[in-house]
Simulated assay, not measured.
Amino acid sequence: MHSGRVPAPAPAAPLRVFVLDDHEVVRRGVRDLLEAEPDIVVAGEAVTAREALARVPAVRPHVAVLDVRLGEGGSGDHAGVEVCRELRARMPELACLMLTSFDDDEALFDAIMAGAAGYVLKRIDGSDLVTAVRLVASGESLLDPRATARVMARLRAPQPEPEPVPFSAELERLSPRELEILELIGEGLTNRQIAERLFLAEKTIKNRVSSILAKLGVGRRVQAALLAGRLKEQQAPRR
Rank of each mutant, 00 (worst) to 15 (best):
R146G: 11
P162W: 02
T190E: 05
V130I: 10
F167A: 06
L184F: 01
I124D: 03
R154Y: 10
D125G: 15
P164R: 10
E187C: 05
A147N: 06
G115S: 14
A132T: 09
L129D: 01
A114L: 00
G186F: 00
F167S: 09
A153V: 02
R134E: 01
R134I: 00
N191R: 13
L155G: 15
D128V: 15
A137G: 09
S168P: 05
A149K: 10
R134V: 07
M152R: 13
T131E: 06
A147T: 04
E178N: 02
E170H: 13
E170R: 14
E183W: 07
E172D: 13
V151M: 03
A114H: 00
V133C: 12
S127E: 15
V136P: 06
S127M: 14
A132Y: 13
R177F: 00
I181P: 13
R177N: 07
A117N: 09
Q159M: 04
E183H: 07
V151K: 04
Q193M: 07
L135T: 12
A117Q: 10
E187P: 07
E178V: 01
A157W: 07
S175H: 01
D128R: 11
L171K: 12
L142E: 03
P160Y: 05
T131I: 12
G139I: 15
S138F: 08
E183I: 02
L129C: 05
L182D: 08
V120K: 07
K122S: 04
G126S: 08
G186C: 01
R146S: 11
R150W: 05
S175N: 02
S138E: 12
T131C: 14
L189I: 01
Y119I: 06
Q193W: 08
R156Q: 13
A169K: 14
G118I: 03
A116S: 07
L179W: 05
R173F: 01
P160L: 06
L182R: 09
V151L: 03
R156I: 14
T148A: 15
A147H: 04
E140V: 14
L135Y: 12
E187V: 03
R150Q: 04
A169F: 12
V130E: 00
L121D: 05
R123A: 02
P176T: 05
D128C: 15
L121N: 06
